[in-house]
Design a protein around this nucleic acid. Structure first.
Lengths: 145, 145
DNA sequence: TTTGATGTAACTATATTTATTACAACTTAC
DNA sequence: GTAAGTTGTAATAAATATAGTTACATCAAA
C-alpha cells in the first residue's frame, strides 16, 4: 500500500512557506487553497510538524514558518514527523502465524533483519534530500511565474 | 501507511514451500494453517505469484512449488507480484493541487524525481535479497525443529 | 474587546484490507 | 465415468485507515 499523502502534503506546505513567506501570511486556509485539501487536515499536519520542531506556528495572528534552516530539514525528518507509524515498521506482518509450525514460529525473526535493511535503504535516501534541494529545484519551475 | 501483509505472507508461503515440500502437500489449506490466515486470501496470493511466474499451482490434486530456482527469485519479484499498486508509485499524492498556484501547479514535477530515487533505493535493496538467502537463514532457526 | 487564526473533538464518508461463505471448474485415482 | 479433493473466483461483510466536514473553545495581537 502507498505511503499516506500526508507526506507529500507536508512537503507541499514547506514549498509554500519557502515561496510565499513575506508575500502572503501562511495560514491553514491559505495552504488549503494551494493544496486543495481541507484546512483541518492542514492544521493537523502543521501540528505534527510543530511537535517535531520543524515549523513554528503563531496562534493569535496566524502564520507558519520553518523552525530551522532549510538545509537542516530533510525529507526523513518530515516523513517521520507526519507518518506516525506507531511501530516505525514499513512492512506490515500478518499478526498470528502458527506457533506450532516451525516456519510460523520463526518467520518474524527470519525476516526482521532483511526488512529492516530495506527500510534503512529507503530512509537513507530520504535523509539525503533537504528542503534546500527542494528550493533550488523549485526555482527552475517558478522562474517565470 | 504500512506495506500490505500480502508481501510478508508471500514470503512466508515460499518459506513453507522450501521447508515442507515432499514432506507435506502444499495446499492453500496447509498454508492457511501455518500463516493463520484465511485460505481464500492464500489462494489469491498464490494466483498473483502464479501470474508473475514465480510458482506453479496444480489444480486437481493441489500442491504448490517454486517455478524457478531459489536464487533466481528476489524479494522485489515477490513485492511486485503481490503489491499490485496500479500506479507502481510508493508515495501517494494529494490529488488536486491548485493549478492557479505556482507551487500547486508544479509540486508534482518538483517531487517526482526525488521520490522516484527513494523508491529506487528501496527496490534495489529488495532486489538484493533472494529466496536462497532466506533458505540459508532459515536453516539456523530450523535446525532443531 | 474585537478580530482572525489555531487546536481539537465529533462525526461522516470513502477506500482498502482482510475474513468468510459458497460454489463452479478442474484433475487425478479408483 | 464418477467420486474426492483442491483451486479459482464471486459476493459480501467486517475491520481499519484515510480524508472531509462542522463546530467551537482557545489564544494572541491590534
Amino acid at each position: 500500500m502507498q505511503i499516506s499523502s500526508r507526506f507529500t502534503l507536508a512537503v507541499h506546505i514547506f514549498a509554500c512557506i519557502d515561496t510565499f513567506s513575506g508575500e502572503y501570511k501562511i495560514t491553514s486556509e491559505f495552504l488549503a487553497g494551494s493544496t486543495n485539501v481541507n484546512p483541518v487536515i492542514i492544521r493537523k499536519i502543521l501540528g505534527q510538524l510543530k511537535s517535531a520542531g520543524l515549523v513554528s506556528v503563531a496562534r493569535g495572528p496566524g502564520g507558519t514558518s520553518a523552525a530551522r534552516p532549510l538545509d537542516d530539514i530533510t525529507f526523513l525528518d518530515i516523513y517521520r514527523a507526519v507518518e506516525c507509524v506507531g511501530s516505525e515498521q514499513l512492512f506490515h506482518f500478518h499478526e498470528n502465524p502458527n506457533p506450532d509450525c516451525p516456519v510460523g514460529r520463526n518467520i518474524h525473526h527470519i525476516l526482521d533483519d532483511k526488512l529492516f535493511r530495506v527500510q534503512a535503504a529507503m530512509e537513507a535516501e530520504l535523509a539525503s534530500i533537504t528542503l534546500a534541494d527542494l528550493k533550488k529545484d523549485m526555482a527552475k519551475y517558478l522562474s517565470g511565474r
